[in-house]
């Protein structure tokens, strides 16, 4: 995310850095787009197996995580607007809340995956290969890849938000130079948005 952190030179161009971030987000969508294509093709080919396997997932944890991410998107948006209102203390507090929420999401994810592992379900596990149909193997393969890649993006997003937080504390990100925080917010909304699609695809469609 270097390109949002570099403006120590006199050529500060907020529009450029925002345009760059949007283009980067575009590439992230396409990255997941490849996975969504794979998912839809295999769902089309194995509708029953995908339904069966989908019943294994816990929609309650999924719903809780969805709410957590939506709230975190709200808090980071509020952090951006409180930066504009020059309320540094509130900005820092809201960013800290956002990071905490992201952490809670990951902890939930950890327990959710843990339950799957306890049931002997992980990519390439004997239970999966010997006892389940090919459609179910694909479902769980995609489940781990897509939620795993999403979790990786959560971690990257947290790092960016932490950097933004430090810069706000140091005073190098402020109401007149908000690019880093705004771009961190954009990235975080992207992470949220991808989850909004993952959640129904894996947890809700039956």
């Amino acid at each position: 995310m270097e390109h949002v952190t570099q403006h120590s030179d006199p050529h500060y161009d907020q529009e450029a850095s925002k345009l760059g971030m949007w283009l980067f987000i575009f590439t992230e969508l396409l990255l997941f787009g490849g996975l969504f294509i794979v998912y839809s093709i295999y769902r089309f080919l194995n509708p029953e197996a995908f339904q069966l396997a989908g019943n294994e997932l816990n929609p309650v944890i999924g719903t809780i995580n969805t709410i957590i991410l939506l709230v975190s998107s709200m808090t980071i948006a509020m952090a951006t607007s409180s930066l504009q209102k020059k309320n540094k203390g509130l900005t820092i507090l809201l960013l800290e809340i956002t990071i905490m929420l992201a952490l809670v999401f990951l902890i939930n994810k950890y327990f959710e995956w843990g339950v799957k592992f306890d049931h002997g379900i992980w990519p390439g596990s004997q239970h999966l290969i010997n006892d389940m149909s090919k459609g179910e193997i694909l479902f769980f393969g995609l489940y781990f890849v897509m939620t795993g890649l999403h979790a990786l993006h959560i971690i990257i997003g947290m790092i960016i938000i932490i950097v933004a937080l430090k810069r706000v504390q140091k005073g190098t990100v402020h109401a007149d130079r908000p690019s880093l925080l705004e771009n961190a917010g954009l990235y975080w909304h992207l992470v949220d948005l991808i989850w909004i699609f993952l959640f129904p695809l894996f947890y809700l469609i039956h």
Binding site: V38, Y42, N46, W122, P123, G124, I129, S133, K134, G135, I137, L138, G141, L142, F144, V145
Partner: peptide, 11 residues
Amino acid sequence: FGIGVFDPALG
């Protein structure tokens, strides 16, 4: 890991 998406043996 053998996730199966391109492996005909796994569907």
